[in-house]
Simulated assay, not measured.
Amino acid sequence: MENLDQKVLQASSGEHRFDPDQQRRFLGTFEERVILAITLEDARLEVVRNQLADILNQIIKIHENPHVKLSSNLPNSLQMNYMKLANQINLNVTVIREDKSLSPYGVIIHSDKPVDIINPDIRSQFPNLFEEPKPSSSEQTEKKSLWKKIFG
């Protein structure tokens, strides 16, 4: 009988979330469902805005029916940009308003079932986006030290 009383008390106390801190961090989504996570800083970068359509097309080929969540902490112009992009690819988009919790992420792309991606951060999944261009061979010339200039 004690077990039944405990269940009644839990049900009357309101909604039960399995891991509310994890859900706040990933804009209301469980971590095991996150396909790609883009931080607020990275979401503001031009390279991410320009390449996100290609990235989303790659994700669609691998994962069935992904969803896009945007943080309300992104500027409105960026929110609109990302919403238009997702709508062109026929993806569902939701803007998550964050009043009490601050997520480090600006864009979360997730599935409705677990995908268990170990590191969903865009910098780990697409490191080539953030590589600095290598200087040409003429720029790589080594500066000679004072001693080498004097003594050859």
Rank of each mutant, 00 (worst) to 15 (best):
R97N: 11
V68N: 04
Q125I: 13
L74M: 14
I55D: 05
S136V: 07
L102K: 11
R97C: 01
R44I: 00
N128L: 04
P127T: 11
Q51Y: 10
S111A: 15
P127V: 13
E41I: 07
V107G: 03
P120D: 07
L36E: 01
A37E: 09
D99C: 07
V95I: 14
S137H: 03
L74W: 03
T29H: 01
I35W: 05
I118A: 11
M83R: 15
N65T: 06
P127Q: 05
E32D: 10
I62L: 03
F126G: 00
V68G: 04
M80G: 02
S137Y: 10
L102Q: 10
N50D: 11
L129P: 08
R49E: 11
D42F: 02
K84H: 10
E98C: 07
I122P: 02
G28V: 08
V115T: 01
R25P: 01
L36H: 00
I59M: 04
P104M: 12
N73Q: 06
P135I: 12
E98T: 13
S103V: 02
D112C: 06
N57S: 08
S77Q: 08
P114I: 03
N119Y: 04
S145Y: 02
M80E: 15
E46Y: 05
K84W: 01
M80Q: 15
S77R: 14
Q51M: 09
N92M: 11
H110Y: 15
L56K: 02
Q79H: 06
N87E: 15
I60T: 09
E41A: 09
F126R: 11
P20I: 10
P20M: 05
R44S: 09
T94R: 13
P20C: 05
V47I: 15
L45T: 08
I38Q: 04
I96F: 01
S111N: 08
E46L: 14
S77N: 12
T39H: 02
N92G: 08
H63R: 04
N119L: 10
E32N: 14
N87F: 12
